[in-house]
């Protein structure tokens, strides 16, 4: 019992350390306007994602901890509740989430981070592509 208590208390301290670490990482947000080739996404998947989209902006978000399809499901469910989100896709191989927003949406990285953190993963940085 004492061993369990010790391990638990010790680990609780580790949570804040990890979150602080991610906060530093997340301070390096950047907005990059490119045509898609430099986004390090699966080009076929990306083209399929863009198919039929117009007058939109796409956020390509780098996410840490997205190692399993079953675990990433909540990301899609959270973002589709936003009426400004037209489409969302997850690239597990490259650890990226693609979110197509309406042109009018003012994309806020803190909002994206918060939604992804609610699913238990960490958004590290993102780029925006205008369509």
């Amino acid at each position: 019992m004492i061993r369990l208590l010790f391990i638990t208390i010790f680990s609780i301290n580790l949570i804040s350390s990890d979150e602080d670490h991610h906060m530093h990482q997340n301070s390096h947000n950047h907005y990059v306007y490119v045509q898609g080739e430099k986004l390090e996404v699966d080009q076929d998947r990306f083209k399929s994602f863009l198919d039929g989209l117009s007058n939109s902006q796409v956020a390509v978000v780098n996410v840490n901890g997205m190692v399993c399809d079953f675990c990433a499901r909540g990301i899609e469910k959270t973002f589709v509740k936003d009426k400004a989100v037209k489409r969302i896709d997850v690239d597990l191989e490259r650890g990226k989430v693609l979110i197509a927003y309406t042109k009018e949406k003012e994309i806020d990285f803190d909002e994206i981070k918060s939604k992804i953190l609610a699913n238990g993963q960490n958004a590290i940085d993102f780029s925006i592509l205008n369509i």
Binding site: I12, I15, D18, H22, G65, V67, N122
Partner: peptide, 8 residues
């Protein structure tokens, strides 16, 4: 209690 996410 604790979660550590990395890229992979």
């Amino acid at each position: 209690v604790n979660r550590k996410n990395t890229k992979n």
